[in-house]
Amino acid sequence: MSNSATLEQLLEPFASRPVARTAAGDLQRLMQKLIVHGFSHLPLPGHGQTLERWRTLAAVAACDLALAKVFEGHTDALAIMAELEPDATPVPGSWGIWAAEPPFARVKIIGREGDQLYLQGKKAWCSGAPLLDHALVTVWDEQHQPQLVAVALSQPAISMSEEGWQAVGMASSASLDVHFELALARGVGMPGQYLDRPGFWQGGAGIAACWFGAACALAGYLRQHCTKPHHDVHAQAHLGTVDATLGAAAAALRETAQWIDAHPRDSAELQVRRVRAQVEAAVSVVLEHVGRALGATPYCRDSHFARLAADLPVYVRQSHAEKDLAELGKQVAAQPVGEWLL
């Protein structure tokens, strides 16, 4: 890793930019700097330093969640390729991972020529689409099996549409619809392997680390407020609630990282579903109590706070709420009695 700049030095100017400033080009340039300086080469999950990986994701999210969305996708794509193609070297550049499968948008393999695949269809929710060089994309093969493919995004056979992306929060993540018209790709791993590998759930916890980092950044404004003279006791009560909640979420993330490193080849689905639910609950508490304590001022006068407060409710909806909780409950019910004992 280059020592020419620290992560904090690269992130701080981006975090403090005015809200009105168009961020897409700035985000792309910062991503390139993070890659060049080596900050995107994180420890792989399940290799003994999972918590260090999540700390970097949380630090980037504390700066800007649109940046975190693209950065996390890039680092996840590198981890996926390391897991499925351990002897291959990824093509240089920025990467994304596009795996959403809504019923209205599917991409299919419609032809093959040697190792090259031809893709046809539309992919939705493609984060960072106009900012990236390459993407891993989930598609469907001729036998209707899911297959992961790698695609270079500079092809004329690939086009992008903004019509499906009307977000205010997370607007600069540029999560567009991408259209493939006989676009070339190559297979990564075997059919179904993307979902079946241990790294699938390990990567899912990295997203919770991003939620957590942003929540901590918002909580930091409340903590700073409570160090000033003449703050009110209600703000202290809000800070106490936030501290207890974030402390529990941090402990849960540390415990989950330790479990993943101790069981790198096992499915972490139960552990990750649980920690995502815990961090999501913490996010809700932080958003409520920080807002109630500080009032409208930071929403209106601090660009960094305003962006995080607008982006975090959108980003955390990557959780499926009660659907995810129901699946967690189903899995917990199948576990031996005593799971909650100290």
Rank of each mutant, 00 (worst) to 15 (best):
V178T: 11
L218I: 05
S16D: 13
G111Y: 01
S303G: 15
Q318D: 06
G46D: 03
S267L: 04
M160I: 10
G38K: 06
K33M: 13
E163P: 00
M160V: 10
S319M: 10
A174N: 15
A24Q: 05
L184R: 13
H230L: 10
I207P: 08
C226W: 02
Q145W: 14
H289P: 08
A171P: 04
S175G: 14
T50H: 03
A105L: 11
A250F: 12
Q49Y: 02
I158F: 13
Q116F: 05
Q236M: 14
S267G: 06
P198E: 02
A59F: 02
D141H: 09
R106E: 09
L119C: 04
A23L: 10
L253T: 00
P86N: 09
A334R: 09
K228P: 00
W201Q: 15
H304E: 05
A251M: 07
A214N: 05
A82N: 08
E181W: 00
M1I: 00
P103W: 09
D324R: 01
Y194R: 01
P336Q: 08
Q155G: 07
A250N: 13
D87F: 07
Q278A: 12
P191R: 01
G73S: 12
L136P: 03
A252S: 13
H263G: 01
A217Y: 00
L117P: 07
K33A: 12
Q147V: 05
C63H: 11
G48Y: 02
G192Y: 12
A135P: 05
E322W: 07
E12D: 12
S127Y: 02
A150S: 15
A249N: 04
Q28C: 09
Q155N: 14
P103F: 14
Y194F: 07
L132W: 03
S173R: 02
Q9G: 14
L132P: 15
